[in-house]
């Protein structure tokens, strides 16, 4: 059983809170008492999806663990903008070791907590898509395979942002990055097979895998809280637009995330022990153009020398996701 929307018609489950909801139905983010795990004064770009996603996720984890939480961070934007000496934005115990080892560091902490009998203290590891799908992948897979008691959260902004927007294995086809420039016959990132980390995580048979976006806070909080109620290795893949790297307006971060989901390009679902348990249906389906066009990293697909054939291929990816995960309600899909 997936995420249960609250029957409330003014704004439904979509807003962060609402004065009319009973407090137990409100999101963590709606509370004055939320932990603000990453506090003001951090140096993320304006409208940074990763900064937002991290607070959403870690605050929810804090709430679920009754503030008994330790966070590990891989190298990347989140780490850099939150802890440049002499100031830290974190309000939770936090450690950054290196780029590729966050899952293992977390394992070590979890082991320490276990051996000390502090099983109430929970461990979250987090990293960017590069830190997760590329350089940290070995450690992540090991952590999954051992089923260590760690919740790993990947903030997927689809490139190595901290080093200046280079391609990662999570960069989508056609996207412009500093290492996949929009030149030549197939501009931007080549169409590959992709590296679907949530599915790879599922293949480990770990207790919980979920995807989410910063556009759907309640779904995200539900997933974090659910993950936190379980033991063992858990993985949440969180889609976080990056205004700088994607060439989007800073106020569009959430809209872009919403369009990624509504177009089917980013399927939002949860899985337990390798089986998909629920999907967040597309509510107002859009074509991929609507998602692609506001982003400068896809500008070369449109403009004066457009590449409609590439847009079609991207639409095919979306359609495949829709079929594969059943993202549309029956009637609409028919």
């Amino acid at each position: 059983m997936g995420f249960q929307p609250i029957k409330f018609y003014q704004t439904g489950t979509y807003t962060v809170g609402n004065r009319l909801l009973s407090p137990d139905q409100r999101s963590v983010q709606a509370a004055e008492s939320r932990s603000n795990s990453i506090n003001s004064g951090h140096r993320a770009c304006q409208g940074c999806g990763e900064a937002l996603g991290a607070r959403y996720a870690i605050d929810a984890a804090m709430a679920e663990s009754h503030n008994r939480l330790i966070a590990v961070n891989a190298t990347g934007c989140l780490e850099v903008f939150s802890t440049p000496y002499p100031e830290s934005s974190w309000q939770v115990p936090w450690i950054h070791s290196v780029f590729g080892n966050a899952p293992a560091v977390a394992t070590g902490i979890a082991a320490a907590m276990k051996v000390k009998g502090k099983t109430d203290v929970r461990v979250v590891a987090q990293g960017g898509d590069g830190g997760t799908t590329d350089i940290g992948f070995g450690c992540l897979s090991g952590m999954f395979e051992r089923n260590d008691d760690v919740l790993y959260i990947c903030y997927d902004n689809q490139a190595y942002m901290n080093t200046g927007v280079q391609r990662s294995s999570a960069t989508p086809p056609a996207a412009r990055t500093a290492t996949t420039m929009p030149v030549g016959p197939e501009p931007g990132n080549p169409f590959g097979q992709g590296k679907n980390l949530p599915e790879i995580a599922m293949a480990h048979g770990i207790p919980y895998v979920a995807t989410a976006t910063v556009a759907d806070l309640r779904d995200l909080e539900y997933k974090v809280r659910r993950a936190m109620r379980m033991r063992g290795a858990r993985y949440i893949h969180l889609f976080v637009p990056c205004p700088l790297g994607w060439g989007t307006a800073s106020h569009d971060t959430i809209r872009i995330a919403r369009l990624a989901k509504e177009s089917g390009l980013f399927p939002v679902f949860e899985a337990e022990h390798g089986e998909v348990r629920s999907v967040l249906k597309i509510r107002r389906k859009v074509r991929v153009e609507e998602y692609l066009m506001p982003q400068k990293r896809f500008a070369h697909l449109f403009g004066s020398h457009p590449h409609p054939e590439m847009v079609i291929r991207i639409q095919e990816i979306a359609d495949r996701n829709i079929r594969k995960y059943g993202l549309l309600d029956e009637e609409e899909a028919a």
């Binding site: 440049p84 830290s88 309000q91 939770v92 936090w94 450690i95």
Partner: peptide, 10 residues
């Protein structure tokens, strides 16, 4: 958790 610190600053 009862005395948070940030280890590993830049």
């Amino acid at each position: 958790p009862s005395e948070p610190i940030s280890i590993g600053a830049m």
